[in-house]
Structure formats: structure tokens, C-alpha cells
Amino acid sequence: MTTDDDTQLLDALRDMWRRADPPPPGLTATMIAAVVSADLDQEWELLVLVRDSAQEPAAQVRGLATARMLYFTAAEGWSLDAEIDGGQVRGQLLDFDGDMGSVEVTVETTDGQSWTTSLDEVGFFAIEAEPTGSLRFTVRLGGSVSSSVWVAL
């Protein structure tokens, strides 16, 4: 139905409108600002890193010295405790009242590796993985997705 001539004419029209009636210079930035300042908490949760063993004085207990402990909280009230040590990423989802079996935890690294697992009935998870570089956690529960910032290992 569309001939090449029509396509060419529409291309010329598009080019003409782009030049004759361009969007205001700051439009994209204004839209980004509007989206950022919107209340995103209910749509896309951020897992906030509230404790990191790397930021604390060296562990006094032998055996934990090599483990990296991270503790995240989400605005909905639950939290994620994680430990990275010896080829394993282990952790537990805390203060979550819903069905633990439906929750998925994903560990991703900036070099593109990714591991996903579900929780056991009390919220524990363990992934055989030796992440390097930086990693982040993503928790999928119910309809929401919560991701942490990237944490350098």
C-alpha cells in the first residue's frame, strides 16, 4: 500500500517538521527531571545499602574476616542480609510477610554475569558464585522489583 514515493515524501516531511518546529532545547531534560521527581517508590523500589562490612572496623571474629556482609532495606519494610564468601553468595530476606516461595533474588555483576535463585520457606538463599568487580542485588516479590546500587567488591 505504501509506495517508495510516499515513503520519500513522508521522510521529507519528517525532516521539514524536525527543522521547522523543533522541541524546546531543554525538553528532554525537563522530562527527565519530571520523571525523577515523581513518586517512584511504589513502582520501582530501591534497595538501600545500610550496612557494609567493608566500611566497618575489621571483624573481630576469626573466620568472618574474609566474608563481605551487606545489609539492605526496602521502603516497604523488609530487608535483605547478604554474605559473599568462598564461592558462595548467601543471605536471607527478613521481615517479609508474603509467600517466600514466590520471591526471586538475582545477583548481577557489572561484567555481565547473573545468578537467580528462589528462597526457601524461611527466606534463605544460597548461590554458588564468585562475583568479581561490582555486584548488585535485585529482589522480585509480588509485582514489584527492587534493585540495589552497584557495590564494589
Binding site: 524536525r18 522541541p23 524546546p24 525538553l27 528532554t28 525537563t30 522530562m31
Partner: peptide
Amino acid sequence: MTPVLWHVVRAYGHDRSSAEDVIQA
């Protein structure tokens, strides 16, 4: 994507500031 939305909304004859409102919504 915002520039394409601009042209689509402006096609409806809205002035520039109304067009911005529609795109923001």
C-alpha cells in the same frame, strides 16, 4: 523518544506549552 512525542503532540495543534504538558503527562 521525547522529540518524536513532541511532533506527535504538536500535530494536534497544541501550542508549545500545552504540548510540553501533554508530553510530561
